[in-house]
Design a binder for these strands. Structure first.
Length: 777
DNA sequence: CCATTATGTTTTTTT
DNA sequence: AACATAATGG
């Protein structure tokens, strides 16, 4: 056995890495060396079992994870072998399969070669297309918000529900409308030779389903599958995995149900919970040792997660780093003070410990929360990097140029066509555009073909009046003709020059720099131009591809690579800066110091998730993910009031905070006294004391966070029985010894008590059953 | 057709 | 508060 493959792995990790081929489920707690296990597993398959790297397919959730895995594998087995392993996200892997085989599907049957040149629509493109759909169906956008319809269609696709099925099961009028939109939307996608994100998965599943011979080929080719973040797979992804794995059953999946946070986009936690039902002979391995965080941080994480009701595999994570700083809980007046606290604390810690700014991250639920933080950091001159937000590839100027590129690649793409038609302003207004579309529709040809017709017609009978079927005044005609001339020139140049040259030619021909300055003024115009130049830089990375492959490859990667892992960020990596990031994006990352801000009702849990149990539990897991990102220090923050849509609203601390035993937390106004505002203290105290009555009418004071944690007005169901246990009380359990009550819930005939036992962890018990006893202080 | 103004909407999270 | 779309007037 080559030692390097197993070096530095613990017993469990080794067991996972060296498990015989066949179904394997690795339940990996946060920080338990999951990526390590995956990479070493691949190395083991190649190095020990002599499996060809080309027959291994590793699927990750983000491009970033894929890249990281590849880098680590490089070091382990060398780049020659590593690069032959197929790695990528579900979406990018499917895109590659379809690039090759989409011709087998009916949508591509007529012209397989053209079908393979499909473009991938991002959410913005989808929106534009849906607008076209609504317009055509004469539906009011107010009544049927395109986003909402898209989200319903997306859910349907994620569940592999076809148009036929959807319309068959449509029960309400609204569903009926959606099914009609679904149908036309899909027809338009095909007409534009486009696939949306969901289609990448759905069409691949369909391909495998309808063409067993094709499936068989892929099954043979990829004899060993490894899937990361299995808890976040949706129905389509799950089906795909089963299809590919069903022949050889060499399926190695890694996941953690406690970190499932993508239910809102169709991920189904049951996929991981039922793995053993799907593969009864599966080997199941638990990775519980955490190498990232100190025990005090893990205690808080554990307290949050055990209060959940849904988790099946009880994992309890632990660390050898028993001592560490207690987690701090900070209340501030508003988001401004919250941000200033964070900025000050970063500066303070940096001064005393000499830590690098890269060691700090601030995490939040919604992107909008980054603003206050940015302001505070800017005012102190602390460099930061904002992950997500308006992504690079979603910026208008970038999308405009990309739309030109896509149109050059595929002039029948109507979404790009309409986007670019009057960018920059060339005198083709809404009316002219609609006329063109109408006219094209009446001839049953794509707008681009209609334009070509217009242009050729001009040449043939010059001086003639426009044919009656062409409803354009001469000025409009001229504008349209010059547009099509431009487009045709660029298309003609496409295969003659390199991608960067093509980009430059486009920018020059549309005078884009000048247009930006004209539209946005010199300052913002230049800033946006910088972004365009950035895109130009990216284009140089494709210069070594064969000429005709440069543009398609570029477009593909741009469509599937989000900013989290974009080239933009790659260059950023060595910059010393604080990271601002959403909780979702933070999954898989780690930082020495983490600030979790905005831990308030309505934000975490988010108000749109509060109504349903499953979504609420997902919010809890999101907090769990955030907490477990921290290696050394963790700060939990909430504000007394927060501005939303330009208006301040009083807030209540997140209910999840009430699940953390007080003794695990250090509460702290770690700010100078003069910063504490009288109003804040006063109002807050009265706010809190209103709430200090427990449901049963007994006072619960001080020791529990839950005193501050309850919402004031909302209906608290009145229990029929009075609670015997309250937060902060000391209790004794026969097996676990002495502990402190965290929360208690009265059930029909018993009481469910959550108790923190020092050294034993946090347990949920039924009071009568567990024979809990009170202890006098 | 375009610039200005009025009005409405947004914020959940992402491949 | 910030941004996008719709309405209005030049």
């Amino acid at each position: 056995m080559s030692t390097i493959i197993l070096e530095g792995l613990n017993e469990r990790q080794r067991e996972a890495v060296t498990a015989p081929p066949g179904p394997v489920l690795v339940l990996a707690g946060p920080g338990s060396g999951k990526t390590r296990v995956l990479t070493h597993r691949i190395a083991y398959l190649i190095g020990e079992l002599n499996i060809s790297p080309a027959s291994i397919l590793a699927v990750t959730f983000t491009n970033k994870a894929a890249r990281e895995m590849r880098e680590r594998l490089d070091k382990l087995i060398g780049p020659e072998l590593a690069e032959r392993v197929m790695m990528g996200t579900f979406h990018s892997v499917c895109a590659r399969f379809l690039r090759r085989d989409i011709g087998h599907l009916d949508r591509g049957r007529q012209n397989p070669d053209q079908a393979r040149n499909f473009v991938v629509y991002d959410s913005d493109d989808q929106l534009q297309l849906m607008r076209q759909v609504l317009k055509e169906l004469r539906l009011d956008e107010k009544q049927y918000p395109p986003r909402q319809i898209l989200s319903r269609i997306s859910s349907a696709k994620n569940e592999l529900i076809s148009i036929a099925e959807y319309s068959r099961y449509a029960r309400t009028y609204y569903e009926e409308i959606i099914s009609r939109c679904y149908e036309l939307y899909q027809r338009k996608l095909i007409a534009n030779n486009a696939l949306d994100f969901d289609d990448l998965l759905v069409e691949t599943v369909r391909l495998f389903d309808q063409h067993p011979d094709v499936l068989q080929r892929y099954q043979k080719r990829y004899a060993h599958l490894l899937i990361d973040e299995y808890q976040d797979t949706n129905r389509a992804q799950y089906t795909l995995v089963k299809q590919l794995a069903s022949a050889q059953r060499n399926l190695f999946v890694v996941g953690d149900e406690a970190q499932a946070i993508y239910g809102w986009r169709g991920a189904d936690i049951r996929n991981i919970l039922q793995f053993e039902d799907d593969f009864p002979d599966a080997k199941v391995i638990l990775l519980e040792q955490n190498y990232r965080s100190t025990q005090p941080i893990l205690d808080v994480a554990q307290a949050i997660i055990v209060a959940s009701r849904q988790l099946k595999h009880s994992k309890s994570i632990w660390s050898e780093r028993k001592d560490g700083l207690r987690v701090r809980l900070i209340e501030t007046y508003d988001e401004g003070e919250e941000a200033r606290f964070v900025a000050d604390e970063i500066e303070r810690l940096r001064a005393v410990s000499g830590a690098s700014l890269n060691d700090f991250a601030v995490m939040y639920r919604t992107n909008a929360q980054s603003r206050a933080l940015e302001e505070a950091l800017i005012s102190r001159g602390v460099p930061y990097r904002l992950i997500g937000g308006t992504r690079f590839y979603e910026r208008k100027e970038i999308k405009d140029i990309l739309a030109y590129m896509r149109l050059i690649h595929n002039p029948y793409d109507t979404v790009s066509f309409e986007r670019v038609l009057n960018v920059p302003n060339r005198g083709i207004g809404d009316k002219t555009r609609d006329q063109l579309i109408q006219w094209a529709a009446s001839l049953q040809i794509p707008p681009y073909t209609a334009l070509q017709l217009l242009a050729s017609d001009q040449e043939e009978d010059q001086e003639q009046r426009p044919a009656p079927s062409m409803p354009f005044a001469s000025r409009q005609r001229a504008a349209l003709q010059s547009f099509v001339a431009l487009l045709d020139e660029l298309i003609a140049a496409r295969d003659q020059i390199s991608l960067p040259e093509l980009l430059d030619l486009t920018l020059e021909r549309v005078n884009y720099h000048e247009a930006l300055v004209r539209e946005y003024g010199p300052d913002e115009g230049e800033e946006r131009w910088e972004n365009v130049l950035e895109l130009r830089n990216v284009s140089f990375e494709y210069i070594n591809f064969p000429r005709e492959a440069q543009l398609p490859t570029f477009l593909e990667e741009v469509a599937l690579v989000s900013d989290v892992d974009s080239l933009d960020q790659r260059r950023e990596r060595d910059r010393d800066a604080v990271t601002l990031i959403t909780l979702h994006q933070a999954k898989g990352l780690e930082y020495a110091v983490v600030f979790l801000v905005g831990l308030e009702e309505g934000l975490l849990p988010h108000s749109r998730s509060a109504s349903e149990m499953d979504r609420l539990e997902e919010e809890r897991r999101l907090l769990y993910v955030g907490v477990t990102r921290a290696k050394e220090r963790l700060y939990l923050l909430y504000a007394f009031r927060r501005a939303q849509w330009g208006r301040y609203e009083a807030t209540a601390p997140s209910r999840f905070l009430a699940d953390i035993p007080t003794m695990l937390i250090e509460r702290g106004p770690a700010r100078p006294v003069e910063m504490v505002r009288q109003t804040s203290l006063f109002t807050h105290r009265s706010f809190g004391s209103n709430q200090s009555l427990a449901p049963g009418g007994t006072k619960r004071r001080g020791r529990s966070l839950s005193t501050a944690g309850q919402k004031n007005t909302k209906e608290q169901p009145q229990p029929t029985r009075t609670a015997r246990f309250f937060a902060g009380q000391k209790v004794r359990h026969a097996q676990f010894g002495e502990g402190t009550v965290v929360t208690s819930r009265v059930l029909d005939d018993d009481e469910e008590v959550t108790v923190a036992f020092p050294g034993k962890g946090v347990k949920r018990l039924l009071a009568a059953f567990a024979k809990l006893e009170h202890i006098k202080d």
